[in-house]
Structure formats: structure tokens, C-alpha cells
């Protein structure tokens, strides 16, 4: 009777394997994001070069590509967010499952005690179980909250936060001391130039090989 109410819990092995797979995909997304960020930086540099060369049209083309890459980055960010959501859900589901298991244990214990109790105690027990059920529903509702919160960030607040960050950075730049002019180069007399060549250093691999040979008594 109670088994049918709560259903069978998911196998832990599946949850762990799924979390590993989600983590793996998350790593891939992060790598891809880094690659795209490098491309964005490269386009910005190219745009600057074209601007210095008075080639406005080419510079605008670079900025357009930059925007395209940034759109891809934003999409990847959303993907990562969704994976994080699902990972949190999975972990929450595990907590829910453990809660249900605990409740089942309690219900089984109550069922065993039922044999030694009268009908009034049974009614009291059912009331308690109903109360526990209501609590569980509230927990599940609370666990579902991140989806709504994540999907409904206040854009105005985010923009305000961004402006604050930009303002802080600008203020920090203003506090930096002015760069001093580079010192004039000092001429070294030709006769005093060092004639001995710098001894060549061994490569890290050669050091590794020498250490291995020493350790193996070769």
C-alpha cells in the first residue's frame, strides 16, 4: 500500500553516471567558450589594426564577427546554466529520494506498530502521514524554485550591477600612476662586451631522462 504511494527510488548508480556525463559536457562547453573568447579578442585586435590603417569598412566587418562570436558565447552560457540546473535538480532528486526512503521506513514502523494499537491511534497516524506528505510537497516546491529564479533574472538589476563594475574599474584606472618615459639607452663600449657564450641549458626532457637513468642504475 505504501510502496505504491511513493514508487521505487532511482538507482544511485544511474544518478552518479548521469552527473559524470553532465560534468563532462560542462567541461566541453567551457573549453569551447574559451576558444570563442580567444577569437573575439583576435577580432578586436584586427579591428584596431584596420582602424589605425583607416580601413573603416574592414574594421566594422571584424566587429560584426565579434558580435557573432559573442552571441555564440551567450548561447553557450545558457547551455551551461541549463546543465547546472539539471545537475542541481538531480542532486535535489536524490535528496527527495532519500527523504521518501526515510518516510517509508517510518511508515513501515508505524504499520508494524499498528497491530498493537487501536483505531484511534490509526487515525492519528494517518493524520501524521498526511502532514508529512504536505511537508514533502512544500520541499519539492522549494526545490523547483531555482528554475524560475534562473529563468527570470531581472535584466535591469544585472545592467545596474554591470555599470557598478565598470565604474569601479574606471576608478581604479584613474588611481594608477602615470607611466614614466623609458630611460635613454646607455651605450656600452664595444671592448667590454662579454665574449664568452652562454652555456646551453639542458631541456626538461633531458633532465627527466638523466634522473630516470640515475634512479634505474643504468
Amino acid at each position: 500500500m505504501f510502496s505504491r504511494m511513493f514508487g521505487k527510488p532511482k538507482q544511485e548508480t544511474n544518478a552518479v553516471a548521469t552527473l559524470d556525463k553532465l560534468n563532462e559536457t560542462l567541461e566541453m562547453l567551457e573549453k569551447k567558450e574559451k576558444v570563442l573568447l580567444k577569437k573575439v579578442a583576435a577580432e578586436v585586435e584586427k579591428a584596431k589594426e584596420f582602424t589605425r590603417g583607416k580601413n573603416k569598412r574592414a574594421a566594422i566587418q571584424c566587429l560584426k564577427r565579434k558580435r557573432l562570436y559573442e552571441q555564440q558565447i551567450e548561447q553557450l552560457g545558457n547551455f551551461q546554466l541549463r546543465i547546472h540546473d539539471q545537475m542541481i535538480l538531480l542532486e535535489g532528486a536524490k535528496a527527495t529520494t532519500e527523504t521518501v526512503d526515510a518516510l517509508r521506513t517510518g511508515a513501515a514502523a508505524m504499520k508494524a506498530m499498528q497491530k498493537a494499537t487501536n483505531i484511534d491511534d490509526v487515525d492519528k497516524t494517518m493524520d501524521e502521514i498526511n502532514e508529512q506528505t504536505e511537508n514533502m510537497k512544500q520541499i519539492q516546491d522549494a526545490l523547483s524554485a531555482p528554475i524560475g529564479a534562473a529563468a527570470d533574472f531581472d535584466e535591469d538589476e544585472l545592467e545596474a550591477e554591470l555599470e557598478e563594475l565598470e565604474g569601479a574599474e574606471l576608478e581604479e584606472q584613474l588611481l594608477q600612476p602615470a607611466t614614466t618615459a623609458p630611460a635613454a639607452p646607455v651605450q656600452v663600449p664595444a671592448g667590454r662586451q662579454p665574449t664568452r657564450p652562454v652555456p646551453a641549458k639542458r631541456t626538461p626532457e633531458e633532465d627527466e631522462l638523466a634522473a630516470l637513468q640515475a634512479e634505474m642504475a643504468l
Binding site: 626538461p204 626532457e205 627527466e208 634522473a211 630516470l212 634512479e215 634505474m216
Partner: peptide, 9 residues
């Protein structure tokens, strides 16, 4: 085998 134990490149 020793090199692998040592974490050689």
C-alpha cells in the same frame, strides 16, 4: 614502468 610511476612527461 619506473618512468610512468614518476610521472615522466
Amino acid at each position: 614502468r619506473k618512468a610512468e610511476e614518476k610521472g615522466t612527461s
